[in-house]
Design a protein around this nucleic acid. Sequence first.
DNA 1: CCATAATACGAATAATTGCTCGCATTCAAT
DNA 2: ATTGAATGCGAGCAATTATTCGTATTATGG
Lengths: 205, 205
Amino acid sequence: MRKAPSQARSRALVGDLIEAAALEIAEGGLQALTTNRVALRAGISVGSLYQYFHDKDELIEAVSAVAADRLLAALNTRMRGFGAHDMRSTTRKVLTEVFDILQNDALHREMLRNFDLARPGVGFATLESVMTEAMRVYLLRNQAKYPVANLPAALFVMVNAVQFTMARYLRGGGGGAAGGISAAQVVAGLTDMLTAYVESAVRAA
Amino acid sequence: MRKAPSQARSRALVGDLIEAAALEIAEGGLQALTTNRVALRAGISVGSLYQYFHDKDELIEAVSAVAADRLLAALNTRMRGFGAHDMRSTTRKVLTEVFDILQNDALHREMLRNFDLARPGVGFATLESVMTEAMRVYLLRNQAKYPVANLPAALFVMVNAVQFTMARYLRGGGGGAAGGISAAQVVAGLTDMLTAYVESAVRAA
DNA sequence: CCATAATACGAATAATTGCTCGCATTCAAT
DNA sequence: ATTGAATGCGAGCAATTATTCGTATTATGG
């Protein structure tokens, strides 16, 4: 951020700007995001925008940071009260919820549709690292049960397999390569695949 | 294509244009691809470019089609003489080769770096459908051995898991989330995951 | 109140770039 | 050779858009 807003009005202004940018993305995609349009929508001058964001990219980053936070918060809420279960149930639950959240939020839908998914540094790096960390802890804790070899590589493969397959499905919108496959089926497939992978370590050992 | 080149010189021109565009992408990424630059590089006028390509996107599509063909051809060559093996060996072989091809070709590297991976319709749709089809045939043929349930969904999950995880790794360039993981380890992980998934169907049945 | 810093404004700028169009050149058929 | 079609040219148009800067307004500390 170019300059930190110190007064209350400027903090509100920055918030409005991010919100307007989010709406703009949600409606017309990234291509519709013009600094002038955002300012117009927020009822703010472009000049003020550049007072707090060094350039357009910084604004977009701010939006995706907010979106990532929202996603994580929503997931946390939905997982509350879901106690300790076996890996399969937990995996299915998490995937189902994330799917549902992403599917029912216009901003997230459009972010998925418009962001370059393979560059998660921009957007969902937070979710990715949280997921990776959660799995690492789980697998280390249950090392006796699931002695996964080469944990870093396994985590990389699993996390990426999940997030991109989901993103791809949500993008496809039912048509294309995903024709006729339901979200539940994708969740089931991913769950089975991850579970089989982790459990295969047992027989290998 | 706006107009099919009928004379020899115009066919050559179109070829030069695509080649120049490929080089342009390979060097500076998609953002460096201006119709004017491409024409300049090809030693051809922009006007001529627009004689054969309706717009910039059509040119990019042509480039990615050529790239996809090249990838497929290279893979075919490398798989020649690789007879019938079990699923694990075959999977490992294919993944290893594809990895190697993608890693050692500037155009492919840049395409991966710059294309929106989750929109394979643009680029690697050919590879995707070939892979999907090959797996479908294999799994149907070995239905007795690997009675995979819900084949379409399973194929979708497997193919996407593979292609995006690979793409992500190749993009990361060793740093970032893929820090310290080797290509061989990623291939091993993917191979294990796919194999475990398919084989888990046996126990489920 | 005053002075000064912070904030806000928005018309104008500057650069980029996809694409067209009128004209020139080359080919192919007769 | 001739002629019409195909091909090739490239300066320039038109539209978009990120960003700046001189000015006006509002807050804050003394």
